[in-house]
Every structure is written in structure tokens, then in C-alpha cells.
Amino acid sequence: MKIHHISENNSILNKFISEIRDVQVQKDAMRFRRNIERIGEIISYELSKELSYNIEKITTPLGSKDIALFEKDVVICSILRAGLPLHQGILNYFDHAESAFISAYRYHPNNDADFDIKVEYFASPSLEGKTLILADPMLATGQSLVAVYEAIKRYGTPKKIHLASVIASADGINFIKDKFGSNADLWIATIDDKLNDKGYIVPGLGDAGDLAFGPKQ
């Protein structure tokens, strides 16, 4: 799996990352969602460089011009509910893409730190032979992405998979490397070194779903 760590090179991306981490700025849920959306747009721009392109002739009022345009075979699949703002940012750039949505959450059967990943809902077009962008803002342990990938395989085999996340842990990246293999690229805005004993990214930013949409029961 090829890893694209976007914030390795300084850019305006740093500002958006700083604001989604900042405990004071986080209090504005609308700004938090917008910053995740902006990060999705930046990831999309970088990711677009790796897509397949065809030459198309475009007619202008004064003539015509051959322009390389990417193939319109993209499906964006986001993990509910935290993935919705990231999904919108990606969709802003890939506005001809199809959309898929899947639910995945941590289930603690013994009310302790151990958990399983429950996948209960999936709505998707066929993925056969298409370019799949699988979006989840937080790549912590990596178990959610793997569970989701296993669940969606029956909808077809994508020709290419792009994983898009805002913050990843080094452990999570190492966990998914072998699970996705050479057919997948990971596009990550920034990487943190550690997970705590509950499997959350440190320093991270907290619960992205709660920050975007409010606390859940």
C-alpha cells in the first residue's frame, strides 16, 4: 500500500488541521464540519493526480481544445456518521461520483476496552471495476476500515481503492497495510504516533462524530 502523507509539506492544510484539533475552535460544530470538508477537498486534489485520464475534445466559442479528464468511474463510500463532512469535501471535487454509505461502530460486549466492529447498514452502487474512495476521518486501530472493506466486497471488486483519512495513528496504518495490499493508496492529512489504552488517537482531536453532530447516547 502506498502512503501519501500530505502534511509532510507545509501548506494551508496546516491551518485546517490546527483548528479541528484546538479545543476552543472545536466548540463551533459548524466550523469543525467545514474544516473537515476543506481537508477532504485538499485530499481530493492530491488524489486526483493518481487517477486514470482520457483526452476529450472540448468545444469553446472560438474553437476546440483537447483536455485530459479523469475517468468518471469514481464511487465515494463514507463511514457513518463521522465521515459525512469528509464525504462532502470529496464530493465537492468529484461531483460526478456515485455515493455509498456504510455504518460501522465499536461494540464493547464486556463493557471494557476490548471491542468488535459492528457493520449494520450499507447502501451502494456496484463497485465492480470502479475507483473506490473509502473515507473515514479517523484511522485509529484500523479495524473499522478493514471490517468495512470485508463487508463491501460482495458489491464488486474495485479496480483501485483510495483510502482517505484526516488523522491516522502509526499503529493503524501498520495494521491495514497488509489487509489492503498493493491495490490501495492511503491519503492521510496527518499522522500521530500513539493510541491510548482505549484505542483512540493521541493527541488526535477527540470523537469526530460528536464534534461534528453532537454527543450520542
Results as ranks from 00 to 15, higher is better:
Ala189Arg: 00
Leu163Gly: 04
Gln24Asp: 14
Glu98Leu: 11
Ile42Glu: 10
Asp192Trp: 00
Ile167Thr: 01
Ser64Arg: 04
Ala113Cys: 06
Gly63Val: 02
Ala189Leu: 01
Ile6Arg: 08
Ser169Arg: 04
Asn174His: 07
Asp114Tyr: 13
Pro215Arg: 08
Phe122Met: 13
Met1Thr: 08
Asp114Val: 02
Pro215Val: 05
Val119Pro: 09
Pro215Asn: 09
Ile176Lys: 05
Ser44Gly: 15
Ala104Arg: 09
Phe175Trp: 00
Leu134Pro: 10
Leu195His: 09
Lys198Arg: 10
Glu71Thr: 09
Phe175Ser: 09
Asp171Arg: 07
Val146Ser: 15
Asn10Thr: 08
Glu98Thr: 03
Ala100Arg: 02
Glu128Asn: 15
Ser44Glu: 11
Asp192Ile: 05
Lys153Gln: 15
Asn174Val: 00
Gln143Lys: 15
Leu86Met: 06
Thr60Arg: 10
Asn110Glu: 14
Thr59Asn: 12
Ser103His: 08
Ile102Phe: 09
Phe94Cys: 06
Gly63Ser: 02
Tyr45Val: 15
Phe94Ala: 08
Arg38Phe: 07
Ile102His: 08
Asn174Met: 01
Phe180Gly: 04
Met138Phe: 00
Leu84Tyr: 03
Val23Pro: 15
Glu98Asn: 14
Leu139Cys: 05
Leu132Thr: 11
Gly209Thr: 03
His96Ser: 14
Pro125Ser: 10
Ala168Ile: 03
Lys130Pro: 12
Ile133Gln: 11
Ser11Ala: 08
Pro215Asp: 02
Arg106His: 09
Ile58Glu: 13
Leu139His: 06
Ala29Met: 05
Ser182His: 08
Ile12Ala: 04
Arg38Cys: 03
Ala208Asp: 09
Phe32Ser: 02
Ala212Ser: 15
Tyr45Phe: 13
Gly172Leu: 02
His5Met: 01
Asn14Val: 00
Lys194Phe: 07
Asn111Gly: 11
Glu120Leu: 07
Ile20Val: 14
Ser52Lys: 15
Leu62Arg: 09
Lys179Arg: 14
Gln143Tyr: 02
Lys179Glu: 14
Asn196Pro: 02
Asn35Cys: 12
Ala82Val: 03
Gln24Lys: 15
Thr141Leu: 03
Glu56Asn: 13
Asn35Tyr: 05
Asp185Ile: 00
Val148Cys: 11
Ser126Ile: 03
Tyr105Met: 01
His162Glu: 02
Ile17Cys: 05
Arg21Cys: 09
Glu46Cys: 05
Ala113Ile: 04
Ile42Thr: 10
Ala168Lys: 05
Leu132Met: 06
Lys179Ser: 11
Lys194Pro: 00
His4Thr: 00
Phe101Met: 11
Gln88Leu: 09
Ile6His: 05
Gly63Glu: 07
Lys194Ala: 10
Phe122Pro: 06
Val74Gln: 09
Leu47Phe: 00
Lys57Leu: 08
Glu56Phe: 12
Tyr93Ile: 13
Val23Thr: 06
Asp95Arg: 08
Tyr107His: 13
Gly129Lys: 14
Val148Met: 12
Asn111Pro: 03
Lys177Glu: 10
Ile167Leu: 14
Tyr93His: 15
Val74Ile: 15
Ile173Leu: 13
Glu150Ser: 15
Ile17Phe: 02
Ala82Arg: 07
Ala212Asn: 08
Phe122Lys: 14
Ala135Glu: 04
Ala97Phe: 01
Asn110Met: 06
Lys57Gln: 13
Pro203Gln: 06
